[in-house]
Amino acid sequence: MLPADFDTARFVHDVLAEDLGQGGDVTSAACIDDGARFRAEMNCREEIVVAGIDLAAAFFRALDPGVRIDTPVADGDKVPAGTVLMRLEGGARAMLTAERSALNTLQHLSGIATLTRRYVDAIAGTGATLLDTRKTIPGLRVLEKLAARMGGAANHRMRLDDGVLIKDNHVAVNGGVAEAVRRARAANTGLQIQVEVDQVDQIEPALTAGAERLLLDNMDNDTLRKAVSLVGGRVPLEASGGVNLDTIRGIAATGVDYISVGRITQSAPAVDIGLDFVLLP
């Protein structure tokens, strides 16, 4: 479900405006009779996890308020190739004009959800939770993080004001982990303080200074196990850096609580979805 403050109408308007330009869909206007009606069926051509189905439907409704739409699937559904995702009946010109915007959105978001589910399945039963990151396409973060949730991940920070995350550059400027944490606590933001560490010897200074969560960055599995043992459950631990489908289960088996993966939003390929039209008499 989209956040309550997400402006669907504005998003749809802006995406359509990008595609329509000043002259609109000149090809459909020239080739399709104004009163022509289409029946259409949208199908996935590979196994996918659905994300963005209601948003895709909104493009068709924006151009033809009377369009009839049936969506037999819902966001989060994992469906096999050939599944009908949407059935439509309405004005032919409007359908053709909205087609690319609707498909682009659904293919991109479902691509994120589908890749995310593969990562989630890879760590099933380990107790670790998959997290997304802020590595998103500018302007699409809310939607891409929604898609990650549909794939089974949990959202990390949505914005920079969602939590204090002290990273290596913050540490370097402050001359060490402890001082960076001390200053963050003195700021009294009321937010959880998470600290990125890339060496085991940074852990105790971070915890002593008041870190409430640790991000274990680019550590190999042996080092992760040492970190888990040293922390002993005092704070949640998140592993990050260089994670892929071949390595994530081994990382999860070290005992970390969370694993963050930037590529589920940054590098997910669009899935293959098609829309086939039939002209009604």
Rank of each mutant, 00 (worst) to 15 (best):
L207M: 01
I203Y: 02
V26M: 12
V278W: 15
L131P: 03
A253D: 15
V177C: 04
Q266T: 03
L224C: 00
L224F: 10
K145S: 01
A239E: 10
I166V: 06
V84S: 01
D246Q: 10
D257M: 06
T247G: 14
A154W: 00
D162T: 08
A178S: 15
D121N: 13
H156C: 06
A209Y: 14
L160Q: 09
G175I: 11
A187G: 11
D64Q: 12
G23Q: 12
P138Y: 08
R263V: 11
A147M: 05
A178D: 10
H108P: 02
R225I: 05
V278G: 05
L216P: 08
N188S: 14
D77P: 02
L96Y: 02
V177R: 08
D217K: 01
M1T: 15
L214T: 07
E18H: 04
L237N: 04
K145M: 03
E41W: 15
A94S: 12
L115T: 12
R45Y: 13
R93W: 11
F277M: 11
V243N: 05
P281D: 09
A211W: 04
L106K: 02
A252C: 05
I137M: 13
S229G: 12
L16K: 01
V171L: 04
M42F: 04
A30Q: 03
V15C: 12
D33C: 12
G23F: 14
A36V: 07
L237A: 07
V164E: 07
G90I: 02
L230E: 04
K145F: 09
D19P: 15
S240K: 04
L131E: 08
A268G: 09
M86R: 03
I69R: 08
R45A: 14
R213I: 05
M158K: 09
V243P: 08
R149W: 12
V142F: 01
V271G: 02
A227S: 05
T105E: 01
V12S: 05
A4F: 14
L130H: 07
N169G: 02
A81H: 03
M95Q: 13
L237R: 06
N188P: 03
A147G: 07
A113M: 12
R39M: 07
I203F: 10
N218A: 11
R234N: 09
V181I: 07
L280V: 15
R157Q: 01
A9R: 14
R39S: 11
F11A: 01
L237T: 09
E238F: 04
L96R: 09
R39H: 04
R182D: 13
R159C: 05
V231E: 05
V67G: 09
L130T: 12
G82P: 03
E196L: 13
V235E: 00
E46P: 00
D198R: 06
F60D: 06
R183V: 02
G66Y: 13
L131W: 14
G190F: 13
I166M: 12
V49D: 01
A227L: 00
L216K: 06
P80N: 07
D54Y: 15
G274Q: 11
R45M: 15
G127L: 00
L143K: 10
T105Q: 01
I203C: 02
H108Q: 09
Q192R: 13
G82Q: 00
A58I: 05
G125A: 00
R61Q: 15
H170Q: 11
G35T: 14
L106T: 00
H170K: 13
P3F: 14
G262C: 06
G255D: 08
A253C: 14
T97A: 02
V256G: 01
A187M: 14
G163D: 05
Q22S: 15
G232F: 07
